[in-house]
Design a protein around this nucleic acid. Structure first.
Lengths: 333, 333
DNA sequence: TTGAATATCTGAAACGTTTCAGATAACCTA
DNA sequence: TAGGTTATCTGAAACGTTTCAGATATTCAA
């Protein structure tokens, strides 16, 4: 690979001059400019970003750590973040944790070693996080996305999960449903608790009892949700509706319905949290509480960059979900 | 941020010794090790990867450039690649091109500037690529994934697109379909041509005529596929089956069917290229030609790393798709 | 014509590492 | 005890940039 020195040699000028021309950091004579540009083109010189960044003390890369890039929710988030980064002149370094706590600190560590400008961290569903190690590694510019840690005072961008649960349950109640199964996420996650809490709040608000036994653990793989749904739908008093609290659980729920020969929404209504843009065209069209994914990504990047040059105290922004009513829920007569 | 010097100072030893201890590059006395480890822990020292990489002349990062990370096909590919990279000790730098030719060279350039160990490049659907510039930038270790450039002799990992088309069409023909609409991708893409060619080959193999007018351009956004499908399904002699040649077009096709009030598979069978794991549980369960995504990702990384230390001439590996028969196609009596 | 002001260019130090030749100390062996 | 090994440790040179103080050449006003 060619270096500044090679270019300087070929152009017959000093290294410093080449640098000046390339970065436009000072006035140079037209002759100089031409000579250097010529040499750069001839040699196909590409500046060595590592050397440059080392010297300059900054790296135009933002790190993104998330649980599973193959999950549409996260890949859409990644997409939004990539766009925001790109237009701010940053590149993206991506790591998957597969919900593995050990990988979280390993990747975070690696990113700090790379001296990235900031890290956007989406904690995984692991029951235990090494919050102490994470806390130290998140000391540089960082924002938590999607899930926060109570013990860490950090910038974060979250969905209003309580509201998401509330929207789903409220919609069903308004349509006359009373016995509503809730296929929740892993109970140790705040996000699961919040969504269920939202459902509970909606029932309360309508003066209805909330039957805790209708809340089942759907885990965060469709498999468990599938079995949980089967279980709850085989109760003597079958729920007339089910709330699937994440896209993984929705897949399990729908599959369980299909296998039990129950039609949706004729036999059972389904309200989901997380929209499925890629299931458009399939039946039933899903009534879903959609997350403002683009806004979340943008906001995360914005806060991260703002954080880099301010010492304001960390803030949490909570964004509102919105309900999209389609065909998977029906009015109960 | 702490540096080796800080650690050396605190431990009361030389910089060289600290480096030796940290990297285990030579034998040191237990006393030395203890002192250094102590200082490292006390200061929370994290090595500066830029400096290290600059000095070492290698970077443990692999670049991935793809058209759209929000498309499940690419996000699953990204996931497979991330896993393969990670287990080989590499991190992933991700760039989206949004099918924009200018971004392709910009991002590729940036990755070369970062001196990444190699680049996995998935060309986008732009009608014109700056193949000259790309060619120069792809001179380092690189592998093309998903789509190749005829004009560039490079390692590549591809799906057997002809076979994919053949599988879909053959399946329909075997089920008695004769009038088959094909919602193709943009005609300027080799990949589209190949898939259609596969369909054509299947018809020929069965001694059937291939009606070119039933091939419509579905572009690479659902929108166009939607309109194309409506058009083809409103012919006086309606096709009894449709082949959707990519996941984007499948969405358009299914939507068109739904809006025209046509049931699938009762009225029209649909065979898709690209599987939809996230539509599991929705109806109809899609008969699809699935790509061996994991294998493609693994193979891409493997070839890339192999390429780094060999001068063998570039090779193309073509992986076979497989047909998954579910409920969206039916036997025609 | 001269001195000052300006325009243009360059040498060399730094950024934080790795690495290797050499320094020092400690241990053997004869 | 001298000489040679061996075991540890360190100084300093690189890696490819940026940047700034200084060098050189040019221009201008008086």
């Amino acid at each position: 690979m060619k270096t500044l020195k090679d270019v300087a040699l070929r152009a017959g000028v000093s290294i410093a001059s080449v640098s000046t021309v390339i970065n436009n950091t000072a006035a140079v004579s037209p002759a100089m400019r031409k000579k250097v540009e010529r040499a750069v083109a001839d040699l196909g010189y590409i500046p060595h970003a590592l050397a440059r960044n080392l010297k300059m003390g900054r790296v135009n890369v933002i790190g993104l750590i998330l649980p599973d890039i193959a999950n549409p929710h996260f890949s859409e988030l990644a997409s939004a973040i990539e766009v925001a980064c790109d237009s701010a002149g940053f590149s993206l370094m991506l790591c998957n944790t597969s919900d593995n706590a050990e990988k979280e600190v390993r990747h975070l560590r690696m990113m700090r070693a790379q001296r990235v400008a900031g890290v956007i961290f989406v904690p995984g569903g692991s029951p235990t996080h090494d919050t102490e190690a994470l806390g130290r590694l998140l000391e540089g510019p960082a924002v938590l996305l999607d899930r926060a840690f109570a013990s860490l005072a950090l910038d974060c961008v979250l969905l209003d999960n309580v509201e998401a649960g509330r929207l789903a349950a409220d919609h069903l109640v308004q349509n006359g449903h009373r016995r509503i199964g809730i296929v929740a996420g892993p109970p140790h996650l705040q996000i699961s608790q919040d969504r269920v809490a939202g459902c509970r709040a909606a029932m309360r608000a309508h003066g209805l009892p909330f039957e805790e036994s209708l809340v089942v653990d759907g885990g965060f793989r469709p498999e468990l949700a599938y079995h949980a749904t089967r279980a709850v739908l085989r109760r003597r008093a079958r729920p007339t509706a089910v709330i699937a609290t994440s896209n993984h659980t929705t897949v399990g729920v729908m599959k369980a319905l299909a296998e039990l020969g129950l039609r949706c929404p004729a036999d059972v209504s389904v309200a989901a949290i997380d929209d499925f843009t890629w299931a458009e065209g399939f039946a039933p069209r899903l009534t879903a509480v959609a997350q403002p994914i683009e806004a979340m990504g943008q906001e995360a990047v914005r806060r991260l960059l703002a954080r880099s040059d301010s010492r304001a105290s960390p803030q949490c922004v909570v964004l509102p979900p919105r309900l999209i009513i389609r065909d998977s829920t029906r009015v109960l007569e």
